[in-house]
Design a binder for these strands. Structure first.
Length: 806
DNA sequence: GAGCACTGC
């Protein structure tokens, strides 16, 4: 397989699975004329043997065919892309194989060109559509507009795109459609066989995101029912082989298909070289004791010894990055001569839009930009002008622990009771190269945690590639070559195997896949996670005893677009929304749901903690954080959705805008499901006015208080309908706010960011747990324990003795 | 009195 990757060495590489004999391949040659689509030329390809592994290559000479748009400068640019040489080979393979896997480095042009080639070859005729999926929204938008530009059409016409909150397609004219893989899965709910698509190209499949993996499994199923559908999988790494095995149809599915049928059920693999420049790799000779220090030293030494060019440093998270930025800036002050030319900038998603923007500004003359970044610069953002990459060899990854385990057994997190600084140091030192994946905390079950993890070879290559975008570059790896070769894992662990699967399960159930355990996964998720997901869904009343979706709740929950998220909390949110319809408070609850679905509505305030707390107090509600969010949302609307108002109140304007978007989507959805949108506040208000009018009850201040009080009870009951499993009670003699979860008596505390921090009500329900030096509950409301039994008698029956009101 | 890699519907 190594030969497959060596795109530069083997000018062009086209291979098929090894188990095909040469005669079979040559037979394809004979079929070419027969099955070749009119209008596209037969590829002038020659088949050659590869001595390394018996893989056959097609070496394609530069194609002479034109796509018929004349030779404008755009057209010339298109032809200069590496993928252009393979135009005919790609069309040939797609014609003859149900699945084609294209291995291509970045910059090969495959994403923008292949959909156009397919359209030119007639795959978008007769009302059919060519689809191309991307894992990220931004990529969908930018690729679509590039393709529209190249084709000289307006976006939303022949070329369109669909992402959440934005559909830029016109069903009667759109023939090339870009969309996120999540959107395509959602489209299956209305059209399970995706009948309007003739070809579906799944791009960036090597990233192995949860939705990409799910999509690939589903597409394989669809393929069996729709033999005419063509699938193209584009991947940047050698995983092509496992993809190929996965898509190879099983014998029993081919009873009626002849071995040499067209399209062939055997996937084809084609490798396309990228456009990147060579990157010289440097390793450290001895393992470094502290990657942060090492990164700082490396930056300084590059600045001393290497010619001009920006530096990109990969660290793990905000903490590390801020520390490194500080060290480098301090160094600037210590020694003006040596580093005065350095412009040091942090980059991570938590930064405000403006701060992120700094990174993209052109480097001032005579300065050298140093960007210290998380993984965000590995795939999501591309920095031009980078010539040097410093790779720490680590990144943060999410891990999910479905069941409680005694001892974590994967390594010591260490230093829990020590001072914060000391602990950080210890953590850093512990991340030597022999460290294995650390699985969360080991003490508490059903929790996801972020863990500093060694990256994979694929990631290391991707990071290095970032140095070769404008000219040959250098990559300095802060680990030894021996470690890279012998110990670093080839690929990362797919998200599917380290996530909570609740949303995945609902989604598949909604698509009519009953046997989840028997689903054909590209990478099987751990059975414990699967079992855990089924349990959670059963306890929420979303699945019945036979593990089928309940009607109507189960089906309705599946419709709500929060369920594709990656935590078990989301079906709880969905359940909360649906219950709110019965409680008559859906208007308020969808606002709460929208706020909970964005990361944080507050901007992080490092310096101005006191002012921040005071501002927050204006919105604070005694009942807890959820009600507080309602006050914030009201304030935002009253301000006319002003960004200025957000700034004054330490609120993240982008996040608030997203809250409005999500809320709109949810309200449209409830209307579509025929569920009432009601506001409990308005209802109680009406009730009091009515009492005043009929019974002459005077309206006094107390009534307004009662009104508020009643509304808050109704709201909290609706929240509990979804989150009853997350209840905790304050330990009786606890002076430090120690709570125990009712479900499993785990020790938890209210997070200091909560409005109930230090208030410590006797009973609370939380939205999520975050595990750092303690287990903290985030987003907490105070409750009456009797509401728990009322909301979930099936769940609390056996535990009733514990639930004596305090 | 603490801290959240990155996506996405």
């Amino acid at each position: 397989m190594t030969s497959l990757l060596a795109g530069n060495r083997a000018q062009s590489v086209s291979a098929r699975p090894k188990n095909l004999s040469l005669s079979n391949v040559l037979a394809y040659g004979e079929h070419m004329a027969r099955f070749w689509r009119p209008g596209s030329e037969r590829p002038r390809a020659t088949l050659v043997d590869d001595e390394e592994g018996g893989v056959l290559f097609v070496s394609a000479p530069p194609s002479s065919s034109s796509s018929g748009f004349g030779h404008s400068s755009l057209e010339r640019q298109r032809q200069r892309l590496p993928v252009f040489k393979y135009r005919d080979a790609i069309l040939y393979l797609v014609e003859n194989h149900a699945t084609t896997i294209i291995v291509g480095e970045t910059g090969s042009g495959k994403t923008t060109q292949i959909p156009q080639y397919l359209k030119e070859a007639g795959w978008a005729e007769g009302g059919r559509v060519v689809a191309c999926t991307q894992p990220r929204r931004l990529a969908v938008q930018s690729v679509a507009s590039r393709v529209a530009e190249e084709m000289g059409v307006k976006i939303g016409e022949e070329v369109g795109y669909t992402i959440r909150f934005e559909d830029q397609t016109n069903p009667s004219v759109t023939v090339i459609k870009f969309l996120t893989d999540g959107v395509l899965i959602r489209e299956m709910m209305d059209d399970p066989l995706l009948t309007k698509y003739s070809v579906i190209m799944v791009d960036e499949a090597h990233e192995r995101s949860l939705s990409t993996d799910m999509l690939l499994g589903l597409l394989k199923k669809i393929q069996r029912r729709r033999p005419e559908l063509r699938i193209i999988i584009s991947s940047a790494t050698i995983e092509a082989k496992s993809m190929s095995t996965f898509f190879q149809a099983r014998k029993k599915d081919l009873l009626h298909a002849a071995e040499d049928c067209v399209p062939s059920h055997l996937p084809a693999i084609l490798s396309v070289e990228g456009k990147g420049y060579t990157v010289e790799i440097h390793y450290v000779e001895e393992p470094v004791p502290d990657y942060l220090q090492a990164a700082v030293h490396t930056v300084l030494s590059i600045n001393d010894k290497e010619p001009a060019g920006d530096i990109l440093v990969f660290l793990t998270g905000q903490d590390d990055i801020d520390a490194a930025v500080k060290l480098l800036r301090e160094d600037t002050q210590d020694d003006r001569r040596r580093t005065s030319g350095l412009l040091v900038l942090p980059l991570y998603s938590g930064l405000s839009r403006d701060d992120q923007g700094l990174v993209f500004a052109p480097t001032p003359k005579g300065k050298r930009k140093v960007v210290i970044s998380t993984n965000i610069a590995e795939t999501s953002l591309t920095l031009e002008g980078v010539v040097y990459v410093v790779d720490s060899g680590f990144s943060k990854q999410r891990f999910y622990n479905p069941m409680a385990i005694e001892e974590d057994g994967f390594g010591e997190r260490g230093g829990r009771r020590r001072g914060k600084e000391e602990e950080k140091e210890e953590k850093r030192r512990n991340h030597t190269y022999s460290q294995q994946h650390t699985m969360g905390d080991g003490e508490i079950s059903d929790i996801e945690s972020l863990v500093v993890t060694p990256i994979s070879k694929a990631s290391a290559r991707q990071r290095a590639g970032r140095a070769g975008r404008i000219r040959p570059g250098k990559c300095f790896r802060l680990y030894t070559e021996e470690y890279f070769l012998k110990e670093m894992p080839t690929e990362g662990i797919p998200e599917m195997q380290r996530s909570n699967l609740v949303s995945c399960v609902i989604q598949l159930k909604a698509l009519g896949i009953d046997n989840i355990l028997g689903f054909d996964w590209l990478a099987s998720p751990p059975p414990e996670a699967m079992v855990r997901a089924l349990e959670v869904l059963y306890s929420l009343g979303i699945l019945d005893e036979d593990a089928k979706l309940t009607s109507p709740i189960g089906y309705q929950v599946a419709e709500i677009p929060l369920v594709l998220a990656l935590t078990s909390i989301d079906p709880m949110i969905s359940k909360m929304i649906l219950s709110a319809c019965n409680f008559g408070c859906s208007e308020e609850i969808i606002t709460i749901a929208a706020v909970l679905s964005v990361q944080s509505i507050w901007v992080s305030m490092w310096g101005a903690q006191k002012e921040f707390d005071e501002v927050k107090l204006h919105f604070a509600a005694a009942e807890g954080d959820h009600i507080t969010y309602l006050n914030v949302y009201k304030g935002f609307l009253n301000s006319g959705k002003s960004s200025q108002w957000c700034y004054k109140n330490y609120l993240n304007y982008q996040a608030m805008k997203k809250v409005v978007d999500v809320r709109d989507q949810l309200s449209r959805l409830l209307r579509r499901l025929g569920l009432a949108l009601k506001s409990c506040e308005k209802d109680t208000q009406a009730f009091i006015l009515l009492s005043h009018w009929i019974f002459r009850v005077p309206i006094v201040l107390e009534f307004c208080t009662i009104l508020y009080f009643v509304a808050c009870i109704i709201l909290r009951k609706a929240i509990i309908a979804g989150f009853f499993a997350n209840s905790c009670h304050l330990e009786e003699y606890s002076h430090n706010g120690l709570y125990k979860t009712v479900r499993s008596s785990e020790e938890v505390y209210i997070h200091p960011s909560s409005v109930l921090f230090r208030v410590n009500p006797k009973w609370v329900v939380y939205h999520s747990l975050v595990s750092t030096n303690k287990h903290y509950m985030r987003n907490v409301i105070a409750i009456d324990p009797s509401w728990l039994i009322e909301a979930a008698p099936h769940f609390y029956q056996l535990r009733a003795p514990n639930l004596a009101p305090c």
